[in-house]
Write a protein that binds this DNA or RNA. Structure first.
Lengths: 174, 174, 174, 174
DNA sequence: GATGAATGAGTTTTCATTCAT
DNA sequence: AATGAATGAAAACTCATTCAT
């Protein structure tokens, strides 16, 4: 992957995440990435396939995070890790998350959200911890995190430390 | 408000909610509403002001729901009502919710989300019920509901009955 | 002629003269004249016919001025009157002149410029005064005035007193 | 500058000069120039900037003419050259003049009319020739030429030979 | 790999005009 | 006489995409 090809990808991620796929023209991407508009099409064939590539590239980052959770043996730690995920997004990952949630509400392109493996592994953890209805429990926790993310990503920064500890308390985590 | 003017508003709500503001052209709205494109601009001046009008029109509906919660005196019932809100969206309101959440992530236009009054009233309820950190508690509940909504609105219909009762259980509601 | 009909005419003159026929929409005229757009068409049938009416209305004013020159018996006074014409445009007539010259360069509508009678009467005056080539002489004087007008109307206010006396000097007028 | 880009410029000059900026649509220009409408905007960004470019392109031509007058040492010849300017417009320059005068009355875009340098150089000539009030004299001559131009450009072709010689006579030029 | 030139189909918006009341 | 509602056609401009080099 040449420098310019990568530059296009990163610029597209940045713009799509911040302004939405529809609001960003290929011309704008080209300008920001300091490449010709034609090059975008040489490398990615169409705007939608560029989005595809961006999403795929983003998913690389997510995969790592998910794996880290799924492979955690201790159920409490596993849940803790999941919760921590949302509360300490690395700056570089912020764009990925923004795009992810935008695409969930505006499914321009099919994305793999890793929702299912997360749900499975959390259900398993709750079951091991003898929670009633572990599947439902996992679902509810995931919703809470989703809701938190949506709010954070739309710009409202909360005092997340208190939130996190209170949430962990609910599951007797520290 | 003439029939056609209202028709434009409803059509716009429908299309904006389902496909997003950017993806819907005024031509498409006009066609679906069976009016001339020019009429949209006669009545609403610009596409963005049409969105404004749509949002305002939508908010009318929300106001009622929020009032119903805020005015509830019994704290337990108040929280229950809030939870129920998300779990039994009237079909006619579905579009409003879709648009609301789309706009939250893509703030094309400033919307009043009623988040603040809801938070205040829920905090108050939790305080009355002697919960620790009632504000945080309210916040977390709201996130859970938000997360649920996001998932529901992006098309994943869950077995919501179990979810609802489990969630209510957490707050010792029935 | 009703008040509103006249208001439309005057507003149209004002706008056409200042911004040009093409740049002024019937909507703008209606707004400024505080009448409905439809009324313009009730009274004048079309935008171009409104211009026609405006021009005709303007010509009323000109006719008077021209007559005043043509009927002047003394040749020197006649020429003097013509020169004075340009140098003391009444404020109310300014719009008429603006429109006149705009239409001369952009003949949207056929206008009667009174050029011919003026030329005839000036030629006659110069002949009486024994000028060589009185027709050409008249033509040249008319050009000078035209040029002066074009410059005045495009906003460049000159120290016209000196100009006038110098010009009159050339024809031994005072 | 590619062929098509130049073609657009020339076509625009032609149409703007003959029909006026407002009356000529970009669609018409594109059609006449046998290019896509989009290309106009690729090359010139907006209709008004196209006019800008046209004017700039035109001014190139004028600059030459003006220089030729200003650099003339002999005062009589200098004035003669100025007068001749108007009386023998090269066919290719006609469009430039039309546009120039149209824009003077309808200042859609700021144009450099070279009025000032011409006035200075003519004043100087008249002073050298011991005319009284050389500045005013220059002004009057310029008005006469302006007036002549306005009339010629609005289509009234006069027997200009006689006019020219009579005008020159006034300044004892041949 | 990279670009500048070019375009067809679309975008939002404005236009002059008509019609029912 | 006067208006508000309504429209077809056109306006300027943008879009994603192709192609020759």
């Amino acid at each position: 992957m040449t420098d310019k090809k990568k530059k296009i990808l990163k610029t597209a991620l940045n713009l799509f995440a911040n302004f939405g796929y529809e609001s960003v023209s290929t011309a704008k991407i080209a300008k920001r990435a300091r490449v010709s508009e034609a090059l975008i099409f040489k490398h990615y064939r169409s705007k939608i396939q560029l989005l595809d590539a961006v999403v795929l590239y983003g998913q690389e980052g997510f995969k790592e995070l998910v794996t880290n959770i799924v492979l955690e043996e201790n159920p409490k730690t596993r849940i803790t890790k999941y919760i921590d995920l949302a509360f300490k997004i690395r700056n570089e990952d912020l764009l990925l998350w923004k795009l992810e949630y935008k695409l969930r509400l505006n499914p321009t392109v099919t994305i793999n959200t890793f929702q299912k493996p997360i749900h499975t592994t959390l259900s398993d953890a709750f079951q091991t911890l003898k929670f009633k209805n572990p599947k439902i429990e996992a679902q509810l926790l995931m919703y809470t995190i989703d809701g938190f993310m949506v709010n954070v990503l739309s710009g409202e920064m909360e005092n997340s430390t208190k939130l996190k500890s209170q949430l962990k308390n609910k599951y007797s985590l520290k």
